[in-house]
């Protein structure tokens, strides 16, 4: 088996008051609008707009009510620290807060957390986002940028996990530059370069002087021999189109 931290789409129920009967009634109305879409859908309850009322909310009844409508209540988020233990015994998972325009309005401690942690762009692929009926919630993950300002020498490997990579120095023949996101290389690119290392097909490679041994995006690779020789030593951008790597001149 494998245990991985991945993101899935979840419906978020933003509570505005604590009347369980009214909440479940509204939920039923929503469900009736698209019954096929919402069958046994997982749901997360967001309490960021409740304020002090949250202490009076009957979470046991809420869980039961949501189940009766035909959703699966998986967790709650944006709840005060002192309530987590009670909620856990009632069978609720407490989710890490997400930064959304709503949670930014939350007072105090949570706001500080939200400001430190910017949302990660979960929608590299614009198409996915456009076609999905429910907007994916941005997860609360530190956004990372990896910058390398020394030459990447033969035999060295640099890897930007869940981030884009910028290299400000030359990369040598026999070196490997990898990133889960896109890769930007401002010195001569002479080694191997692998963008979208974990399958991100919209990752791209940008370089000022293309002399790479091997280029790859999301596992599709190509050797320098197969490249259009007119672009060798020139600024170039590499992207994936279907199964094919497209190498284009990069105009500044």
């Amino acid at each position: 088996m494998k245990l991985k931290g991945e993101m899935s789409m979840l419906n978020i129920l933003h509570l505005e008051d604590i009347d369980v009967a009214a909440i479940c009634g509204n939920l039923q109305t929503k469900k009736d609008e698209a019954p096929q879409f919402f069958i046994q859908s997982p749901i997360v309850v967001d309490c960021s707009e409740l304020g002090d009322q949250i202490a009076k909310l009957d979470f046991v009844a809420l869980k039961k009510g949501i189940e009766e409508v035909g959703f699966i209540p998986v967790g709650v988020r944006n709840i005060p620290q002192d309530m987590t233990a009670t909620l856990a015994t009632n069978g609720w998972a407490v989710m890490r807060e997400s930064i959304s325009p709503v949670s930014k309005a939350v007072e105090g401690k949570q706001e500080a957390v939200a400001q430190q942690q910017a949302p990660r762009d979960t929608s590299y692929d614009a198409n996915t986002q456009a076609t999905s009926e429910v907007q994916p919630q941005a997860a609360l993950v530190d956004i990372k940028s990896v910058t390398v300002d020394r030459p990447v020498r033969s035999g060295q490997q640099v890897y930007a996990a869940q981030a884009d990579m910028t290299v400000l120095a030359p990369t040598s023949a026999g070196s490997e530059v990898m990133a889960d996101g896109s890769i930007h290389i401002y010195g001569p690119l002479r080694g191997r370069v692998l963008a979208g290392a974990r399958g991100n097909e919209s990752a791209r490679i940008f370089c000022q002087s293309l002399q790479a041994e091997l280029i790859a995006i999301a596992g599709r690779y190509q050797l320098l021999d197969e490249l259009d020789t007119k672009l060798i030593g020139k600024p170039a951008m590499i992207r994936l189109e279907g199964e094919k790597l497209i190498v284009e001149p990069l105009h500044g």
Partner: peptide, 23 residues
Amino acid sequence: VRDSDRILGILQSRSKVAEEGGT
């Protein structure tokens, strides 16, 4: 030239000065 490049990489990643964050 390639072997020199390799040794430069080792020098800047595995020497004592490099381990202590210097160059």
